[in-house]
Amino acid sequence: MKTKDLAYIALFAAIVAVLGLLPPVPVPGIPVPITAQTLGVMLAGSVLGARRGGLALLAFLAVVAVGLPVLSGGRGGLGVFVGPSAGYLYSWPIAAFVIGLLTQLFWRRYNLAWALVANLIGGLLVIYAIGIPFTSLYADIPLWTSFTGAFAFIPGDVVKAVAASLVAVAVHKAYPVIDLPTRRATAG
């Protein structure tokens, strides 16, 4: 991994942090607000690819753990890693990695449709598949209740996936950072 890659990782960790500075939208009855930060998760995977995207989110979590209140709503510190919604936090690096993996897979024919597939699978499926059971186990509530609680976020997350895909496709054209296929071809 080159120093440039480290800079990209740090950049997307910072982007997720800045997205957290936007005021969150609280949903009545659910202790987790709708935030723009998963948008950053999707962008990190879509723009940087699997390894760097996942590491960017790990770097972000490290910055949160150090005590900087960069999680949406000004949360931060080690307390957020032990709450009932911590599963969602833990899912972010994995989600970014999965999105990056799919993006690399689709890279040669990357367009809005493929970007959407990657972001919906990684940004919704993966995050919910980790976050929902975690909350259910942690708070000792039935899986179904935890699932219906998360239901309120799905429309917002779909909107974010569409937005992230639009941006990712444009960045893919304007300033592509993933360059595995061509590099590998010339090196081989």
Binding site: L6, A10, A13, A14, L55, V63
Partner: peptide, 14 residues
């Protein structure tokens, strides 16, 4: 190095 850069980039990106 990555964390130091992240901290520097946050105000910059904002």
């Amino acid at each position: 190095l990555v964390i130091a850069m992240t901290l520097r980039f946050i105000p910059l990106v904002a």
